[in-house]
C-alpha cells in the first residue's frame, strides 16, 4: 500500500507491504546509516527518530509510518557532524556498526534531557549495544557534545 512520509525533511511516497519493517524500508530508500543487527529491538543499531522520538526501526511496521516524520543520520547534518566529531576524537566509533544509531540517540538525548547528570546520560544511552568500545568513551563523547553550542 502507498504511504506518505517526510524523510529527513523531504516528502516521499512509498509503496510498502503490511509485512515490511521500517528499518528495511529505510535502507531501501537511501538510508544506509540504518543498520540491522539483532532484528528484535535489543541492540538499538537501527535507531531513527519517528515523529521526534528515538525508535527501534526494526520493530516498527512500515505501514505505521504513514504520515510520520522520520529522521536518520543522513538528515541530521551539522548536529551529526558535531556528535561524530566528539565520538571519533575519542575513538568511540569502534567498528562503526552501532555508531549511526548511537548518533541519532545522542541527538535525541540532547533534545529530551536538560542538563543531565552523568548517570542520566548513561541510562539514556543504554539501549544502544556496542561490542567494541566498552561504552565509557561514548558517554564522554556525549557529555562533550552537550557542552557544544
Amino acid at each position: 500500500m502507498k504511504i506518505q512520509v517526510t524523510l529527513n525533511g523531504k516528502k516521499q511516497e512509498w509503496d510498502v507491504t503490511p509485512n515490511e519493517y521500517l528499518a528495511d524500508t529505510l535502507r531501501a530508500h537511501g538510508c544506509p546509516s540504518v543498520k540491522i543487527s539483532c532484528g528484535d529491538g535489543a541492540c538499538g543499531t537501527c535507531t531513527v527518530l519517528l515523529n521526534g522520538k528515538p525508535m527501534v526501526s526494526c520493530e516498527v511496521l512500515s505501514v505505521r509510518a504513514d504520515g510520520a516524520e522520520i529522521v536518520t543520520v543522513e538528515g541530521l547534518e551539522e548536529e551529526a557532524d558535531k556528535i561524530v566529531d566528539c565520538l571519533t576524537r575519542l575513538g568511540g566509533e569502534g567498528c562503526g556498526w552501532c555508531a549511526p544509531g548511537f548518533v541519532v540517540l545522542a541527538y535525541a538525548l540532547k533534545r529530551e534531557l536538560h542538563n543531565p547528570t552523568y548517570d542520566e546520560v548513561k541510562a539514556y544511552l543504554n539501549g544502544n549495544l556496542c561490542r567494541c568500545t566498552g561504552y565509557i568513551v561514548r558517554i564522554e563523547a556525549v557529555l562533550e557534545y552537550l557542552q557544544m553550542p
Binding site: P54, V56, N126, G127
Partner: peptide, 12 residues
C-alpha cells in the same frame, strides 16, 4: 520498566 533495554525500545 527501565531495564527494558533502551529508550528507543520503550518508545515503541
Amino acid at each position: 520498566m527501565e531495564h527494558l533495554i533502551g529508550v528507543q525500545l520503550r518508545n515503541a
